[in-house]
């Protein structure tokens, strides 16, 4: 269930940066998470799809790179299609 909170916070961050870099569409979002944070890829993807429906993030792929700690939760980078379509 905590994935819903994380997904909401990721949405706010990605929304801000997508606007800044004039993204037409967000293709993929890469997160880094400590194994101890309990964030689960499938559950996160589930909530992300609900939040992203009807937005430029719809259909975006989520990838979580797990590292061995208890606290890291980071939006590392994203792959975008910009206004030019590239």
């Amino acid at each position: 269930m905590h994935e819903l909170t994380y997904a909401r916070e990721v949405y706010k961050i990605v929304h801000k940066y997508a606007k800044y870099c004039k993204a037409n569409r967000v293709i993929a979002i890469y997160l880094v998470a400590g194994t101890g944070t309990g964030i689960e890829q499938a559950s996160f993807q589930f909530y992300w799809e609900k939040l992203a429906k009807g937005t430029p993030f719809e259909g975006s792929h989520i990838e979580i790179d797990y590292i061995n700690d208890d606290t890291t939760l980071l939006v590392d980078r994203m792959r975008i299609e910009d206004k030019g379509g590239s």
Partner: peptide, 15 residues
């Protein structure tokens, strides 16, 4: 397609 580095903690705003 372009890659954009963000490097921001997910819980930044809540913290």
């Amino acid at each position: 397609m372009k890659q954009f580095v963000i490097n921001q903690p997910i819980l930044d705003e809540l913290t």
